[in-house]
Nucleic acid binder design. Structure first.
Lengths: 330, 330
DNA sequence: TTGAAAGCGCTAACAG
DNA sequence: CTGTTAGCGCTTTCAA
């Protein structure tokens, strides 16, 4: 691999001039052509290791994904990657498995200068630690966020989204609606519960605590919670699950117990993952603009990397209720 | 951020000694403690930009994933990441979307020294180009591969796997078995077709070309192909699809047309993605040891990075037929 | 418009 | 066992 010096020699100029050509600096047209020819002939590509050290940047964005196998996140990552790449950044993939220790190791990459900033999706780490990291390095929260730590976020209005989902069930006649929520340590879980309650209240339906359950994030959790709900004496006639995966678990249990969706039980999910539309019946859900969220997160982070003193401005993107077979009027 | 020099000063030693401590070189216990204390007090972390330039390595593995939203790949990537991280490498995520231009940009990262090697999953690029890349840089093929280019690969025995899947259908009594294959430009597609034919021949069943269709890789392709198969005068009684996503598409069409699985039509997929077990009915499929494939690919690549003259040795991992509801005896 | 030269932070050869 | 020093490839003053 040729270095900048060899290019300079071949073109009969100094390395400074080659560098200027590389970075669109002030160079006379004639010299520029000379240098460009040399670059082409030697098939030269700048060594980023040298550039990065000199500039003291890595042009890497650390993307902390709780679980890369969760199809909810993959589309966000696509958006992040496309936006990053467009701005000359690469993505460092960090699958956290919601493990605090792993996250800590990843955060060290910032100190080691291997990443210029981070996008978090669902930090497992202590919120105060994250706050400290946010003071020293560019950080953006994507989807799940905390408002108290002065780190900008991209999200949707979870309260309204959950409100719409629940209201949809109410509108088609359901009065007994269960909520399969995830852990309420998550902001989004608290917000979605709030929206759910808001809708019930609007329809003068009392909240039945038996019908509000907290699950993990897995398919199996969804199954388990649904099994519990169906074991109740007073069974719900519909379920709103805060993720499609949970809803798909619920769907499976309902069918396994010989009941029919939507005739016996209506089901609404959340996220609109690809599989929501592959199920039988297809799943009514809330569409989150995941690709766009990724794009905005990356762009916001890059802005912050370039100008550390950027003011924190959060972004709330639109969501959408998508009605499918699992809540066809009954 | 303190540099190695500041640590040296604080510890009262030279930078070389600090470097030795950092890299487990020869240092007297006393000095080592001195240095370690200084490191701790200053909260020092080595700047990898400096180290990487000096060593002329990036400790990054470029992972070219055709489609990050395809759950088949995500588990492989988990394996790659874990194994890489264990060896001090990070993963550069590159979503190719099966786009040749994107792949080319990613390959440039090697020249730019931003990655030390590549793992390809399903290269869209011209095989000769890949061969050239393989001559100059460490490359490992994972899953889909070409044998002619002298680049090592990790894969399963696709012929035998497809043979087993088909034989299973034959064993439970099916005689009219369709094959929903993907594009035969892929080695694995040709191999799986071979296994399918081999099983039929073993049971003295003639191959019916009408029942062999080539689809894309999407759910929609699966639906479309199944629709075609059901439109035939002489319909198959079972389908072997070369991916779970295709099989899930087929499942959906079959149900939409009012038929039942497995009673009317048996379905076998391939890959054992998480969702195969969430469907209704659950999907019989071939399990590929995806995590392990990722681990082996990463380890093999790292070996090649460390010793460029490593001899090419391919790895074939075990697969397994997993029988579920979609082929319960009928 | 161009070149000379310093230096980013680190490692490793060499000398002691 | 430890220190001195060159230099990885690049960018960026500064001076011409």
């Amino acid at each position: 691999m040729p270095t900048i010096e060899e290019v300079a020699k071949a073109a009969g100029v100094s390395v400074a001039t080659v560098s200027r050509v590389l970075n669109n600096g002030q160079v006379s047209p004639k010299t520029r052509i000379l240098v460009e020819n040399a670059i082409r002939e030697l098939n030269y590509e700048p060594n980023m290791l040298g550039r990065n050290l000199r500039r003291s940047e890595s042009r890497m964005i650390l993307t902390m994904i709780p679980n890369i196998s969760n199809p909810f996140y993959s589309v966000i990552v696509e958006g992040i990657e496309d936006a990053a790449r467009k701005n000359g950044y690469n993505i460092l993939l960090c699958n956290t498995e919601a493990d605090v220790e792993r996250e800590k190791i990843y955060l060290d990459l910032l100190k080691q200068k291997l990443a210029d900033g981070i996008i978090t999706m669902e930090p497992a780490i202590d919120i105060d630690v994250l706050k400290e990291v946010g003071k020293r390095y560019p950080v953006v929260q994507c989807c799940e966020y905390s408002e108290k730590i002065n780190i900008p976020y991209i999200a949707i209005d979870n309260v309204t989204a959950a409100y719409k989902a629940t209201k949809h069930l109410l509108t088609i006649g359901h009065k007994k609606i269960a909520l399969i929520n995830s852990d309420e340590k998550f902001m989004y879980a608290r917000q979605r519960k709030e929206g759910y309650i808001k809708a019930l209240q609007e329809f003068d339906i009392p909240v039945n605590e038996d019908w509000i359950v907290n699950a993990g994030l897995s398919f199996e959790s969804g199954q388990r919670m649904m099994k519990y709900l169906l074991s109740l004496k007073d069974k719900p006639s519909a379920v709103f699950a805060v993720s499609d995966i949970l809803a798909i678990g619920a769907l499976k249990t309902i069918k396994d117990e010989g009941l029919k969706v939507p005739q016996d039980i209506g089901v609404v999910g959340f996220d609109n993952i690809q599989f929501a539309n592959m199920m039988n019946p297809t799943l009514t859900t809330i569409e989150q603009p995941r690709y766009q969220m990724g794009v905005e997160a990356a762009e916001m982070l890059i802005k912050r990397i370039k100008d550390k003193k950027q003011k924190v401005e959060n972004v709330i993107l639109d969501h959408q209720l998508i009605i499918r077979e699992s809540t066809m009027e009954y």
